[in-house]
Design a protein around this nucleic acid. Sequence first.
DNA 1: GCATTATATAACCAACAAGTTAATTAACCA
DNA 2: TGGTTAATTAACTTGTTGGTTATATAATGC
Lengths: 123, 123
Amino acid sequence: MPDTLSQTFSALADPTRRAMLARLSRGEASISDLGEPFRKRMSLPAITKHVKVLERAGLIIKARRAQQRPCKLNPEALKDVANWMEQYRQYWEESFDRLDAYLKTVTAAANEPKKGDPDEHAK
Amino acid sequence: MPDTLSQTFSALADPTRRAMLARLSRGEASISDLGEPFRKRMSLPAITKHVKVLERAGLIIKARRAQQRPCKLNPEALKDVANWMEQYRQYWEESFDRLDAYLKTVTAAANEPKKGDPDEHAK
DNA sequence: GCATTATATAACCAACAAGTTAATTAACCA
DNA sequence: TGGTTAATTAACTTGTTGGTTATATAATGC
């Protein structure tokens, strides 16, 4: 299913493409710049395909200057991922299993002291 | 390539699986609980496969209680994603195109005032 | 022991992803 | 005009994903 977020996550699910993004986080780069670290391992068409995946996922923007195709990061897709992640922040943050979990237990008990709540885990 | 982060992103690249995670963020759930919203659309084996993908990606932890397999979120994988995202925070945050970009231009100009810098975007 | 409930496995299929080589387009340069 | 550089397209192969149906396992309850 080609919903935007799925496309973005799927584009990120490849170390070559993540390396390309890392490269772009240090500045604009052409296709061959982006591919250079992989040229021993893979052909140029493979590289342009990876770039195209990043582009279709909205993670980069490709321009044209002479024969080159200078690429840069597009914040939009990254922002979408960050927004999606937000809803899970409490789960990965250090304090969750300790203070935060404790606080939720306390407030839940105060609001609704009934036992066997199906949402037990959410505390 | 089955590096952990790629597996995690690839597990997230599916709306069914993201919906399952959303369900789990509101509390523990069994396989059939997780699958219930999709039972009109897909078979049970398809559902257990999705759950298995989430499990192998480290996004959930599956226990056993009688015939059920109660699942819960595993913060570890989410934390890995969040950590990876951190390096791009500046790109998606509101202020980037404005203040931050401006500040980088200024400091770059102070250090190296030459024009047509190939790293222009990084400023 | 037997039926029921919950989940898992096997075998299969269609669609897609990631790579290849070979050929093509497009811009620049002399 | 012709050559070089940068990137793309085409055609193909191979492996993986996401689904199916049918069958099997495993724990519970009578």
